[in-house]
Simulated scan of single mutants.
Amino acid sequence: MSEGMGKVTCNLTISADGYSAGLNQSEERPFGDDGGDGWGDKLHAWYVEGAEENKAEIDAMMSATKAFIMGRNMFGPVRGEWDRQWNGWWGENPPYHAPVFVLTHYARDPQPMDGGTTFHFVTDGIESALAQARAAAGDGEIAIQGGATTINQYLAAGLIDELRLHIAPLTLGAGTRLFEGVPPLKLEQVTARATSMVTHVTYRVLR
């Protein structure tokens, strides 16, 4: 992290065996097969059913972050070639309330939403997305929101300062896995807290 720049972090919920999504992801089930009936019921239950117990971590996800980066699949699946009218998974008022830079192969005009979120679509790679996010964030933090494939690209390029993982007590066995294709990392544990539905662990990525 350079002087005057905010940290580049990630927040990611993973299973105990390291998967951020199961097999068979679809528009109806964006996190695939995780043993639940819909929107990542089992993997992300801590965020919904356990919101009170995990309030500190939920609040911390957004409080210091001034810009976000996500992969196109986290914004929403491709419908045909690319539905330029669809606003993604997030409804009319996404939770980000800040600029979000979406990595994609398909150009699209910025999409402003209620609450201060604007999705910007970046077609020229992860470093371009990070440069644009830095310009938008100033000295605030930038969060690589996911999914795991996008986070893995930034980890492999040495561009993430801090990993904030939320480990759910279940295994998926297959799917999209964190650290896939990433060279060995040296991590320093910063914090760890267990609640009844998840364990929160923060690691600093050492250079």
Results as ranks from 00 to 15, higher is better:
residue 2 S to H: 13
residue 10 C to R: 00
residue 156 A to S: 13
residue 89 W to V: 03
residue 103 L to D: 00
residue 172 L to P: 05
residue 142 I to C: 13
residue 114 D to R: 13
residue 190 V to W: 04
residue 73 N to E: 07
residue 172 L to E: 09
residue 198 V to L: 11
residue 114 D to E: 15
residue 105 H to K: 15
residue 91 G to A: 12
residue 127 E to H: 15
residue 87 N to K: 05
residue 68 F to R: 08
residue 155 L to P: 04
residue 153 Q to I: 03
residue 127 E to M: 14
residue 201 V to G: 06
residue 79 R to N: 13
residue 112 P to V: 00
residue 16 A to N: 08
residue 21 A to C: 10
residue 176 T to K: 08
residue 119 F to S: 03
residue 18 G to T: 09
residue 163 L to C: 10
residue 89 W to R: 11
residue 177 R to G: 03
residue 32 G to N: 02
residue 12 L to P: 01
residue 146 G to R: 11
residue 20 S to N: 11
residue 108 R to H: 12
residue 191 T to S: 15
residue 148 A to M: 12
residue 99 P to I: 12
residue 93 N to L: 08
residue 82 W to K: 05
residue 137 A to N: 09
residue 167 I to G: 01
residue 78 V to R: 13
residue 157 A to M: 01
residue 48 V to C: 03
residue 13 T to C: 13
residue 98 A to C: 03
residue 41 D to R: 09
residue 67 A to F: 12
residue 196 S to A: 15
residue 80 G to K: 02
residue 39 W to R: 07
residue 202 T to Q: 10
residue 55 K to F: 10
residue 38 G to C: 06
residue 138 G to C: 10
residue 1 M to L: 07
residue 170 L to R: 09
residue 182 V to H: 09
residue 47 Y to H: 10
residue 185 L to F: 08
residue 81 E to S: 12
residue 59 D to E: 13
